[in-house]
């Protein structure tokens, strides 16, 4: 049962190890720019959701950055599949689709959690106080699981590279900008609010922000995250089960 998980992780982590410095450097830049531009730029004059803006922003950057990293395995799986045919090596082995899916998801979670640590370091540097509770751990695990599952699903159902870029442009980027990363969603016009409350990132952001800043964590939202994660996990499983190359 574990050979597939071990195999996928062995490959992903060894490839990651060789590029780690470049990858970490690249993924650390954009959150830093946001912090400098919005955190320092707005300073104390802006209050969002009852918090100093920089305190509001950091949890948003955590969800955004970990989403980018976790969901980002989509692109990597894609290149591995279409350019290098690496999936053939998994598919001829005596391992089931569930093992392959779990291997990829764990890798996505690893990347997501690594970027979370990075933002915590920024929080220290910008001396923003955060509360790290078990509830935070639970929610970041669900969050990275959710978006790794989504990334795996997308990577398996699309037919080529172009469609990957399309999904990123029309789904992922708008989601990152609208779902409470940079401002509270409650200020959005009604129509947008409807849209935003259909997207899973909204709940991740609310739960993670509340857990880090001492707000009240909605169990209902947490349950919704679990629901989304389950759905995407199942779609990822189905997609890998029927994939032929």
């Amino acid at each position: 049962m574990f050979n597939g998980i071990k195999g996928v992780l062995y490959r992903e982590l060894n490839v990651y190890r060789k590029r780690a410095r470049k990858l970490i450097l690249a993924s650390s830049l954009s959150p830093l720019l946001y912090l400098i531009a919005f955190g320092w730029g707005f300073g104390d004059r802006v209050v969002a959701g009852g918090l100093p803006y920089i305190t509001f922003l950091i949890p948003g950057l955590i969800t955004m950055s970990s989403l980018n990293q976790s969901y980002g395995i989509s692109q990597e799986i894609n290149i591995a599949r279409f350019y290098f045919h690496l999936y053939d090596e998994y598919l001829i082995a005596p391992v089931g689709p569930m093992e392959i899916v779990l291997g990829e998801i764990f890798y996505g979670m690893f990347k997501g959690l690594l970027s979370t640590i990075l933002i915590f370091i920024y929080a220290l540097i910008f001396s923003v106080d955060l509360i790290i509770s078990p509830l935070f751990f639970l929610s970041i695990l669900i969050h990275t699981f959710l978006f790794s599952s989504l990334g795996t699903t997308i990577a398996m159902v699309i037919k080529d590279h172009g469609s990957q870029a399309t999904v990123n442009t029309f789904v992922i980027t708008p989601m990152i900008f609208l779902c409470g990363t940079f401002f509270p969603v409650d200020r959005l016009p009604y129509v947008f609010k409807l849209l935003v409350y259909a997207l899973p990132l909204t709940y991740s952001t609310k739960v993670i922000r509340a857990s880090l800043t001492g707000g009240e964590v909605s169990i209902f939202f947490l349950a919704l995250m679990v629901a989304y994660a389950s759905v995407f996990f199942y779609t990822a499983y189905l997609a890998v089960r029927r994939v032929e190359a």
């Binding site: 060894n14 490839v15 590029r19 290098f84 045919h85 690496l86 053939d88 090596e89």
Partner: peptide, 13 residues
């Protein structure tokens, strides 16, 4: 055992 028409080795490994 299978050897495909193309080489599907991981270039980075």
């Amino acid at each position: 055992g299978v050897v495909h028409q193309y080489s599907n080795l991981d270039r980075d490994l």
